[in-house]
Amino acid sequence: MALYSEKVMDHFRNPRNVGVIEDADGVGEVGNAKCGDIMKMYLKIEGDVITDAKFETFGCGSAIASSSMATELIKGKPVADAMRLTNQAVTEALDGLPSHKIHCSVLAEEAIHAALEDYHRKTKSEDCP
């Protein structure tokens, strides 16, 4: 009997897209150390497509797995699709999370959205100097 699904453990043990994008077009950070979870997402966006996504996470196994899965779900996708990413989609892709760990998938959704908002803010200011 394991705490997490095979999928969660796979993404926890071998997280995809770990790291930093130095010249990211959008960066989002959510959570706080007091609560024990911080996720930081870096997005590279060309045209209207997310060409690369990377993350750094301080948190439990499901927080790391949720970050990994969320980056996989949006990589190569149009920005509009990524804006519609939900925590349910992350949870389902991970074959479920224990009920007290659902907030990890919420953080992943929020981190992606925060990075996209950062991207929109930056592009807007570039459009209207």
Binding site: L3, M9, F12, G36, C60, G61
Partner: peptide, 26 residues
């Protein structure tokens, strides 16, 4: 400093070590 206890426990478990943590997640 800089890490969270549950992920530490899970990776130690992978190495055959049973331990515990006082992190909120555990």
């Amino acid at each position: 400093e800089g890490i969270e206890g549950e992920s530490l426990l899970l990776l130690l478990d992978d190495r055959g070590i049973c331990a515990s943590s006082g992190s909120a997640c555990t």
